[in-house]
Amino acid sequence: MIYSITNFRLFSHFGLRRRVRWTFTVPLFLTAVLYLQGCDGGLAPPELKPFGSISGIITYSGSWPPADSLDDLRFIAMRFIPADTADFLQLNKMEISSSLDLFVDTDSFLIENVIPGGFFYSGVAQKFSIDLLAWRPVGLVEENGGIFEVEPASRTVVSIHVDFDHLPPFPPESQ
């Protein structure tokens, strides 16, 4: 490559234009090949681990809130302990069930395709207005201090009791 460039002016003086062009072509393609060698293919799908699942039984007691304050009701499992309702935006660190039935004594849920890992704050949450962050917990998983683990290719079963007359504090008192 160095030889080609340093001799370029000499070729030009003798009018060997085509030869000069190809002389320049060689280092160009050498550069391209070197670049190709440095390529690693870039972004790739992550290596997937077998999913787990979470299922549970929910029992209700107390007086249900008015229907107009029951915009939604779901089981939510969090991989962290929330400090504020703004933490509900951490959707990537939560597993959320489909909507639960309202005004019933008992219900169940199943969340599939859960990435294995630990969950530290989970329970049934009520959405009391249309606001995206208008959620509050109404009943928590209490076994083992509320902490459970989802293993690959296995189902973790939890139970929650919701007493609408005695709602759990939020943010959690331990925080």
């Binding site: 972004l43 959707l91 597993e95 959320i96 489909s98 395709n113 990435i115």
Partner: peptide, 20 residues
């Protein structure tokens, strides 16, 4: 997500396996 780069994601709360 990185495992589904060709499809748009969703903020709909409908489970963790992607859009409802």
């Amino acid at each position: 997500g990185q495992d589904d780069v060709l499809n748009p994601g969703s903020l709909s709360i409908g489970g963790s396996a992607g859009p409802a």
